[in-house]
């Protein structure tokens, strides 16, 4: 019970997020209207995804410095939850964009997928997809762990500029990018958000991050049990 306080916290926060997220009063903006509530879900997916990838990156570094197979299981466990969250974030964003960005006639979803932020998101999903393809192509476990750790570190370091730097240099329709090359890549939560929404948004970020960590730890525990014989610790 002592160790699971954060799981309870995550549950409580997410119940609060869903209830307050759907029932609270939100500012009524043109075009967006009630779809603004997507903020509590879509944006949090990206936060949680980044957290998962950062943890995975750290475990890959730990693997290379210690060569403990356990660290490789951790790295792949967090990366797999991260890619899942990335897909969810992409889908929630696409549904939202379908109702808010496609206001003109003759515009297809394909024409807006070229948005710099969407490209960054797609790159992230492709990179970690490649990471799992690479994992699948080895038979030797130690070699697999070492080579995929190298790829994970390299990919994460390359992902960083493509998500955080390049979108700042080009214009975008995405909220938070008002000018041609200014603004935060995603959203400036301190200035753009209504105070009431901030009270739900930040807890929601924490809640989703905790939930995804929980899922990742479960996956890792299963894998650790499966590979029990390989872990000589």
């Amino acid at each position: 019970m002592k160790k699971s306080w954060w799981k309870i916290l995550s549950f409580v926060i997410l119940v609060y997020t869903v209830v307050a997220g759907f029932l609270s009063k939100v500012p009524d903006l043109p075009i967006i209207h009630q779809s603004i509530r997507n903020l509590y879900f879509h944006v949090c997916m990206w936060f949680a995804m980044m957290v998962m990838f950062i943890i995975s990156f750290i475990y890959s570094i730990k693997y290379l410095s210690s060569s403990k197979y356990k660290n490789d299981i951790y790295a792949s466990g967090y990366a797999s939850v991260g890619i899942y969250l990335g897909l969810l974030g992409y889908i929630t964003g696409a549904i939202w964009a379908n109702y808010t960005w496609l206001t003109d006639q003759n515009q297809s979803l394909g024409s807006i997928l070229k948005e710099p932020k969407l490209i960054g998101a797609a790159i992230a999903i492709l990179i970690y997809g490649a990471y799992f393809v690479l994992r699948g192509s080895f038979t030797d476990i130690d070699k697999k762990a070492r080579v995929t750790a190298v790829y994970n570190i390299f990919a994460f370091a390359m992902l960083f500029p493509s998500i955080w730097i390049i979108p700042r240099m080009v214009g975008s329709l995405h909220p938070g990018a008002p000018g041609s090359d200014s603004g935060n890549p995603a959203l400036n939560a301190q200035n753009d958000l209504d105070a009431g929404m901030r009270m739900i948004f930040w807890p929601a970020v924490i809640g989703w991050c905790l939930l995804s960590t929980w899922i990742a730890t479960l996956r890792i525990r299963i894998q650790l049990l499966k590979d029990k014989t390989l872990l000589n610790e």
Binding site: I119, G120, I123, L126, I127, G129, A130, V133, L134, S137, Y151, F154, A155, M158, P161, S162, I166
Partner: peptide, 15 residues
């Protein structure tokens, strides 16, 4: 594998 791993990584630079 080279193409699978490299293409997503090179997209930002290529853009």
């Amino acid at each position: 594998l080279i193409a699978i791993m490299g293409f997503p990584l090179i997209i930002p630079q290529l853009m």
